[in-house]
Design a protein around this nucleic acid. Sequence first.
DNA 1: GTCTATAAGCCGATAGAC
DNA 2: GTCTATCGGCTTATAGAC
Lengths: 192, 192
Amino acid sequence: MARKPAPGTRERILDTAATLFYDHGVQAVGMQQIIDHAECGKNLLYREFSSKTELVATYLERERQAFLRRWEEAGRRAGDDPSARLIAFMEATALSVQSPGYRGCPFRNYLAEVADHDDLPGRIATAYLLDTRERIESLVAELNVADPVLLTERIWLIVEGLHTAAAHPGGDRAAQVAVSLVKELIDQAAGA
Amino acid sequence: MARKPAPGTRERILDTAATLFYDHGVQAVGMQQIIDHAECGKNLLYREFSSKTELVATYLERERQAFLRRWEEAGRRAGDDPSARLIAFMEATALSVQSPGYRGCPFRNYLAEVADHDDLPGRIATAYLLDTRERIESLVAELNVADPVLLTERIWLIVEGLHTAAAHPGGDRAAQVAVSLVKELIDQAAGA
DNA sequence: GTCTATAAGCCGATAGAC
DNA sequence: GTCTATCGGCTTATAGAC
């Protein structure tokens, strides 16, 4: 009789790969390296993930799902007020970029290191960016501001800057500065 | 006697490598690919650049020199007023990120795709970031604003965001938005 | 574990200027 | 013929894939 597949193998490989991909970049990590760290055989890895591209896509998709959960949780705690939800999103982002070992946004890093955005990982990464931007756009549309397009563009610029700046030397204060600046822009657009 | 070395060989190879490195990422481009595009032999490339790391470092260093020239030229045209110089820098940056084929800042892309920042290319890239940030800091210090540290952090956040956002889908308006936002922040900090 | 492709880097072979 | 800039193939390691 055949041996039963060990449960959680796929997740364990994916965990290992995700850590390596994030810490060293997708291109710099080889399949052999993942196998060594996951302590599995090549056959097992290729049984679960038919190619490196698929493994990368799964890694990014899992990150995307995690982002969506964080977004929903932050939104739930912030209630119905769109400005509170925007600030909650900024604070959640600020928290994530301040986590130890932060090395930039996985999606932005992927798009920076791989030029071809037409394969599955590239489509997931661009979808993440467009989706996040649209979520901000929707919340801003609920605010009663004179120029919602401008405010959306400004917040998005700060979000992009936050992810990038926090990964660079001297980026320790970026999170705090980004949150306070977005608050000020919302107040300024809504208030006065 | 002996054959004369062809003039401009080093520059031609470097031009080719720079284009490939920028368009496809440093890691994705092999030495053979550079040789094929530059239409030279391996020996010639390795005579001019002893390793790929050195070639990448030379590429980044040349980009850094080009940045310094643009900075000085923009500063010269803006005159002595620090706020005019800051805005001139933002406008020059806005222009560069709107150039066709823009695929992000070469230094930030390098740091995103290579995790080890201790080798020569990594040191050049981080030096560029710290230097640029300090230049902004110096100009802001010349302004009479209540909180120069905060204004510096805010402008830097927008600069980081501009480089990143302009490379992403829907980033067409980022340049214009970044310039106008920095103008507003300077006016707000100095004026009212 | 093995296979093929390709990476970086090295060296014998080639060829063009005197 | 001689000398050297340049070329193309070689080596070793490692990539992805079966």
